[in-house]
Measured scan of single mutants.
Amino acid sequence: MPVRRGHVAPQNTFLDTIIRKFEGQSRKFIIANARVENCAVIYCNDGFCELCGYSRAEVMQRPCTCDFLHGPRTQRRAAAQIAQALLGAEERKVEIAFYRKDGSCFLCLVDVVPVKNEDGAVIMFILNFEVVMEKDMVGSPAHDTNHRGPPTSWLAPGRAKTFRLKLPALLALTARESSVRSGGAGGAGAPGAVVVDVDLTPAAPSSESLALDEVTAMDNHVAGLGPAEERRALVGPGSPPRSAPGQLPSPRAHSLNPDASGSSCSLARTRSRESCASVRRASSADDIEAMRAGVLPPPPRHASTGAMHPLRSGLLNSTSDSDLVRYRTISKIPQITLNFVDLKGDPFLASPTSDREIIAPKIKERTHNVTEKVTQVLSLGADVLPEYKLQAPRIHRWTILHYSPFKAVWDWLILLLVIYTAVFTPYSAAFLLKETEEGPPATECGYACQPLAVVDLIVDIMFIVDILINFRTTYVNANEEVVSHPGRIAVHYFKGWFLIDMVAAIPFDLLI
């Protein structure tokens, strides 16, 4: 008679799926529990143990900040960024110097990925580790590398530091407007667009060049630039800015003055950032001319202004700041037409079709709590990747769950009947059967004279019903998954307890 339990259901295979997918890609990662103190490590794979030199037993239950890997060259700011990422709910990448158990130093890129439950609360953290440099290539500990984003994938490793954006290309926007319009339909740009040429040739750093990471940081200074100062900065030398009595002219307006920039070969870094931020506020060169004239017309309804409409929906549905990093990277690809469009465009503009998908598509409701890094690593669709929660398995109709209350009560009843059979069957065979043979035949009273025979008949009927119930009862397979398919249940029961239950259900007393 089957006594099969499996009270692990309803099970959740999400954690096993993450481990299996990460292991298949030869990654070095740990999984931490966000619900406990210090976000203790609950799993670390073999790749991480080989990377740091510690065994799994030495890593388990330690804080996922990996303070046991810190050393003299470990930056405090990087460690603080990892700790801050564990307090938030967004994906974050941090470069930090770690030390192995043998004392060797290596520069590592740590990717902190939160995993949320159905309520939107962070319950786990996945920390992925990628070695960037070994100890002989690690720089000085005073050099802070965590304020910069990861290198873009479309640049060669040897040319990542030679990417320079020439400031004269930004200063000569109005001069290039006529050349853009003359391109017409034969050019790649839309009317009114501004073409910015980027020099990728390796050259020595000069005062006129600005690194790509500095251009990325310009967006942080746009908020500090007032509207009046932006307007004066875009007017140009024809209309000098008016300053109040006793007030000095704005240095932001002076930063885009061609006369002032041409007199000296070098520009201050602050002026460069502010000038680029001011130019980015204009949607095209037409807006710059309109600002000089004193009238700013409404933005025209053409394809170039609607190019950012799908980007707005993608940004609203993005799951991490990696989408913004990807957008900034692609927006700086050289030799393309940049349409400086305000994100607050007309909502009635139709979304044009684009061959290049900048932001990841909208994630469906079932995966809105899973970050983009987890979705990318697992390579699963929205119909396959579940949320991290207890999910009731989908069972067929008329199927009994093996952990249901009805099955528990039924098993206790069958257990009592088995005990009765084990006690009274030998007793009936030894004593009652002998008395029946010696006594007179009682054929007239039937079952009324033999109450134990009636009980034995009921017990046999219950055993037959138990066999039928076992054909529709779920079970737990070797992978700790609840199986509810009727065919698989029948095959599993035939290979197991079916023969024993059938022999126990045969009414031998009635056959004798």
Rank of each mutant, 00 (worst) to 15 (best):
A97K: 12
S250P: 15
S351M: 07
A190P: 07
I31K: 01
E90I: 08
V122R: 07
G71N: 01
S266D: 09
A80F: 09
V374C: 01
P334W: 01
P334Y: 01
P240T: 14
F98Y: 14
P10I: 09
F106P: 01
Q11V: 13
D136P: 14
E37L: 09
K93Q: 13
G158C: 05
L171Y: 10
R5W: 15
R292G: 14
L212H: 08
Y99S: 03
S206R: 07
R148L: 08
F29K: 01
I30Y: 01
A360K: 04
G47W: 01
F340I: 12
F48T: 01
G381Y: 13
T305W: 07
E134Q: 07
H302M: 12
P245Y: 14
R164G: 14
L200V: 12
P300S: 07
F29E: 01
R281F: 10
A382D: 11
A190Y: 11
T319H: 08
A290I: 06
K344S: 05
R62I: 01
T319Y: 08
A282T: 05
L324I: 14
Q11S: 10
S55L: 02
S272I: 07
L338H: 15
E23W: 01
G183L: 09
H368M: 10
T319K: 07
L316N: 11
V198D: 03
A290Y: 04
F68G: 01
D286G: 07
H368D: 05
K101A: 05
S207W: 15
G183V: 06
P72F: 01
I333R: 15
T145E: 03
S278I: 14
R148F: 06
V196M: 15
L165N: 10
K135D: 08
C52I: 15
T152E: 05
K332C: 04
T216M: 15
P157M: 11
V113M: 15
L225Q: 08
V113D: 11
N128V: 15
P241V: 14
V195R: 06
M291G: 06
A83G: 07
S313Y: 12
V3N: 14
A85G: 05
I18Q: 06
C49P: 01
D111A: 06
Q61D: 09
S284G: 11
T152S: 09
F68R: 01
P297H: 15
P157L: 14
F22D: 05
G183H: 10
A34Y: 03
A34K: 06
S104I: 06
N33I: 05
L316T: 09
R242I: 09
R56P: 09
G47E: 06
N146G: 08
Y327R: 07
R159A: 14
A79K: 08
V370Y: 11
E37I: 06
N220K: 12
G88F: 03
R181V: 09
D102F: 01
I333M: 15
R292F: 03
H368A: 14
V132E: 07
R242L: 12
E134G: 14
Q376T: 04
E23F: 01
T152L: 06
P249I: 11
T145W: 09
A188Q: 11
G24Q: 13
A190H: 06
E214H: 11
D119R: 06
C64M: 05
E118P: 08
A228N: 15
H70P: 01
E50C: 06
L155C: 11
A89H: 07
D213A: 13
V374Q: 01
A350M: 13
I336F: 14
E230N: 05
A40Q: 10
R27Y: 09
V131W: 07
A260C: 13
P141E: 10
R181Q: 07
Q335T: 11
S331M: 05
G192A: 12
S209N: 14
G187M: 06
G88I: 14
A172N: 08
G236H: 06
I336A: 15
T329S: 13
G246H: 15
A190N: 05
R5K: 13
K166L: 06
G187C: 05
S140T: 08
I333W: 07
P251A: 10
V3Q: 15
E372Y: 04
A185E: 12
Q25H: 11
D286C: 14
G120F: 07
E230R: 08
G183A: 08
A360P: 15
H254V: 05
I126K: 01
V3K: 07
G294P: 14
N220F: 05
L173G: 15
F125P: 01
A203M: 14
K364D: 08
D259K: 15
A80P: 01
K161L: 03
A188E: 08
